[in-house]
């Protein structure tokens, strides 16, 4: 019993490693059912595509390399959905690292759907200032982002011809690995200008953001790899999030079993009056 209570953590690591590696090699096919919060994002994009097709969508990238496995699949699935519906998309970054991560994905997916740079999509790059950037966007788009990443003045981009500020976007979506959704976009953007706003975040952040769904400050939310996998299921694309759900589920079972084992041994030892 004492040996089980003091199990070497490296043994648990090996189990977790096997729990990830084996399902990646063997296809298990677990069903993925979209949750209401994820479906709400899908429905909102469908709604603005029908009801408000002329105004562009603003996507904000606020993540870095350390959260790429979670954030990249949801970036791909949201942009895939937007471009597949012919939505015009403007991309900005509130994290410097996001420039090199998001722009290639945006260019790749835009090319896949035959979208033309400047007319159908634009990438304005990074601007430091966090909430100050959001605040400024509410006043002037060109004042906040005077140029795109290629150095073209935003006034020369047809996609932004009718955009003065945040109110001129039909929908705003934030990919957040930090504070951006909760402390930048909601207080200084959505709450002030009342535009439809949704986001995708790392799983760590998701519980903190659920209250904003109830208050409708967020239309919907994609939480972590699971949220991305659910969105892939909605748009009918089997990407890295979908394949990641199988090892995710297996590893969760392994962790639950270790928790049960630890608690069983702990309470058994305590009942026998041993050292616990």
């Amino acid at each position: 019993m004492d040996r089980l209570l003091n199990i070497d953590r490296r043994i648990i690591f090996i189990f977790v490693l096997l729990g990830v590696a084996i399902p990646l090699l063997i296809d298990i096919h677990l069903p993925i059912k979209p949750t209401p919060t994820v479906r709400a994002v899908y429905d909102e994009i469908e709604r603005v595509s029908i009801e408000d097709p002329d105004r562009p969508v603003l996507v904000s990238f606020s993540y870095g390399a350390s959260t790429m496995p979670e954030m990249e699949p949801m970036t791909r699935s949201i942009l895939h959905h937007l471009f597949s519906r012919g939505r015009k998309v403007v991309g900005i970054c509130l994290w410097p690292e996001a420039v090199g991560l998001a722009q290639p994905i945006m260019d790749e997916l835009a090319a896949e759907f035959g979208m033309k740079y400047g007319t159908d999509y634009a990438f304005l790059g990074y601007k430091p200032g966090a909430q100050a950037v959001v605040l400024n966007l509410g006043q002037s788009m060109a004042g906040t982002f005077p140029f795109d990443t290629a150095g073209t003045p935003v006034g020369d981009l047809p996609i932004l011809a009718k955009v003065q500020n945040l109110k001129d976007f039909s929908f705003v979506f934030d990919f957040a690995a930090g504070d951006s959704m909760e402390f930048w976009w909601i207080p200084y953007g959505q709450e002030k200008h009342r535009f439809p706003f949704a986001g995708g975040c790392t799983a760590v952040m998701a519980p903190d953001l659920y209250p904003f769904l109830q208050s409708r400050q967020l239309v919907g939310l994609l939480g972590g790899l699971a949220g991305a996998a659910e969105y892939e299921a909605l748009i009918g694309v089997s990407g890295s999030a979908t394949s990641g759900m199988e090892p995710q589920s297996v590893t969760h079972v392994i962790i639950i079993l270790f928790i049960l084992l630890g608690n069983t041994v702990y309470f058994t030892t305590r009942r026998r009056g041993g050292k616990a």
Binding site: V16, L17, V20, A21, L24, S66, T67, M68, P69, E70, T202, A203, V204, A206, P207, G223, G224, L225, A226, S240, S243, G244, P247, Q248, T251, H252, I255
Partner: peptide, 16 residues
């Protein structure tokens, strides 16, 4: 629970 999910997602990304 969400934190475990997040950390495993990162591990899955690297193992993949």
């Amino acid at each position: 629970g969400y934190t475990i999910m997040a950390r495993l997602s990162l591990l899955i990304g690297r193992i993949s």
